[in-house]
């Protein structure tokens, strides 16, 4: 018998369920309990960068909009720096920028949206740059373990074309599932991007096992 390998095992995931808002967004559940809820203001006005808005919905395998989804957002600042000690440049991250937000879909329409700054390109594997992107983590009733994906930007075509993660996707047509489309008809001053997430079906979003 060899020596035993004594690793613990990751706690198994269980669905966040329909009442995830009680814990993570109690205001949406219908009550006020905390001095401040976390993840509402992704980028205070003092944070430098181009202001953008992202909106979309999550669609299930029957084509129905999922109305009880919660999405967490993680992104670098406008210079491509994460405010986290693992980023070698983190001491230069934009002050006041946590890089993280929490978004819920509207109970009636299923639409969700968040306001942030556009992230910069981030150093990737082997010194290759990754195109500007936002990491998303999606939970809801019926999702047994949170789904991870990335959102890229349609107006970064050159950077997207050389992005090492997009290029790992075998079928080029599936890469488009990760690209938020800039809405050129929008009238608001800040750019608006549309990003729909399809859990299942012909246009299923590429999810990441990270």
């Amino acid at each position: 018998m060899p020596q035993p390998l004594k690793y613990l095992r990751e706690s198994p995931s269980q669905t966040a369920g329909p009442y995830v808002h009680i814990g993570l967004a109690p205001g949406a559940a219908g009550f006020d309990i905390y001095r401040q809820e976390l993840g509402h203001d992704m980028a205070p006005a003092s944070v430098p960068g181009e202001r953008i808005r992202v909106e979309g919905c999550v669609i299930d395998g029957m084509g129905a909009i999922v109305k009880d989804v919660l999405i967490e957002v993680w992104q670098a600042d406008a210079a491509g720096i994460y405010p986290h000690p693992e980023d070698p440049r983190h001491t230069k991250a934009a002050p006041g920028f946590r890089g993280w937000g929490r978004v819920i879909s509207d109970f009636e329409t299923g639409l969700w949206a968040f306001d942030t700054i556009k992230p910069g390109p981030v150093p990737g594997p082997n010194g290759q740059m990754m195109a500007p992107h936002i990491s998303l983590w999606i939970v809801s009733r019926g999702i047994n373990i949170g789904l991870s994906t990335r959102l890229y930007f349609s107006d970064e075509a050159a950077a997207n074309a050389t992005d090492p993660v997009l290029n790992l996707i075998e079928q080029p047509e599936r890469r488009t599932t990760l690209i938020a489309q800039r809405d050129t008809t929008a009238t608001a001053p800040e750019p608006l991007y549309r990003f729909d997430i399809r859990l299942q079906g012909a246009d299923e979003t590429v999810f990441l096992d990270i």
Binding site: A64, V66, P125, I143, N144, L147, Q200, E204, F207, I210
Partner: peptide, 18 residues
Amino acid sequence: SVARSPNLPMLSLRGTLS
């Protein structure tokens, strides 16, 4: 879970800075 479960394989991604 039936209509909310992805069918296609996930893309296995070695951890980057993100």
